[in-house]
Design a protein around this nucleic acid. Structure first.
Lengths: 207, 207
DNA sequence: GCATATACTGTCCAAATGGACAGTATTACC
DNA sequence: GGTAATACTGTCCATTTGGACAGTATATGC
């Protein structure tokens, strides 16, 4: 009962394709025309069935107001804007988007989780994380808040600049360590503020 | 002349917000209502101006058929599905999407260019490109077709499996080389088929 | 057998909608 | 001073559109 018939699925897909292609939502008569129905009532009837089954929503009376309710798909595909910083300023706070250099749209599939208000991105400068295969120019996506686990890469505030370090535990004490033989520092982590844990890396290569 | 007036910008933004929120494209009267115009002609007039300036497109006569022409913005934000392969089969061809394991939505901003039909993704297995900081499990986005330039990473078909190699030129001859000291092979590139040039790297880290 | 869902054709209508036209006022530009 | 673009109000109209209703036919489940 809840599953769609072939015809209903075809009509749902048709609407999805049209909207995805940037074209206006089809009218009942356009749907009928596309499927070769002589009467637009057939299309209206299928639309009613799809609404009843929760697949579509309609603004009653409004022309071309069909909306796909398949939020699962819609949300997976939707690009969410997350703020991208060159460097995180000291007061990490509320109006992050306004302080941000720009925003990058990221999809759940490309970073593996659903971005929240605590998700942000950082453009990496310097090669301090080359040992972890994170390079100058890469964009790292971070989450603010969670406790880092040993081995994870974090952004920490050092000298009013955010820097990427690996979170390690030694003799039961937490430290931050740069993954580059040139800077073999080991800093006690409670001396600085951890701004976020790296969750994904995006790299664009030269054309 | 080409730049928008404040009012025109406001109307353009209103349309964008409504559509982005998943609501049906506003009608002329709804636009007028939202901005407090007593006459819907005012809205129609602005819409006409926006069309003239190339910001909007309309399907003449169709209700709610406004489409934002700001392809720059629209496309930058839109997630485009590109096929993701575990490994590319020998006959690289037509129905790539059907052969693909799955599709990943990618935005232009996250990979730096607009995906075409020749864009595809590959899940990296093995550590043959660790020297280029591309790790096991990473997803690489490739373009099929263009001549690789020296130093670029390419996917090549070796033993019916696609493998990542660096494209190098030595004594005027093109070779493919693995970026891992364990496999220091140098293969003449004309002996195998290059399937694509790596344009971006996506890496998801453990939570 | 009967109710129900599907899958249509066909018709009528009121509301929604876009388009055209007439008119007013302001500002900018030449 | 004149032309053009902007920024509206107001009206009329043909078309588009969704909704309701009547009717036919088939398959499914109770």
């Amino acid at each position: 009962m809840r599953s769609l018939t072939d015809q209903q699925q075809a009509i749902r897909d048709f609407i999805e394709r049209e909207v995805a292609a940037g074209r206006p939502c089809p009218s009942q008569r356009e749907i009928a025309g596309h499927f070769g129905f002589a009467s637009k009532t057939a299309a209206a009837c299928h639309v009613r069935a799809l609404v009843k089954k929760g697949v579509l929503a309609v603004d009653a009376g409004k022309a071309r107001s069909l909306q796909l309710m398949s939020l699962a798909r819609a949300n997976r595909r939707a690009a969410v804007e997350i703020p991208l910083f060159g460097s995180i300023p000291a007061g990490f706070g509320r109006d992050r988007e306004e302080e941000a250099d720009e925003c990058i749209p990221v999809t759940i599939d490309s970073i593996g989780f659903k971005p929240t208000r605590n998700t942000f991105a950082l453009r990496v400068s310097g090669d301090s994380m080359m040992g972890k295969h994170i390079l100058d120019g890469d964009i790292v996506v971070l989450e603010h808040g969670p406790e880092p686990r040993p081995g994870q890469v974090v952004a920490a505030l050092i000298d009013r600049k955010s820097t990427l370090k690996t979170f390690v535990v030694k003799n039961g004490k937490p430290f931050l360590k740069a993954e580059n033989p040139k800077y073999p520092d080991l800093i006690p982590s409670d001396e600085l503020m951890i701004q976020g844990v790296v969750r994904a890396v995006l790299r664009r290569l030269e054309k």
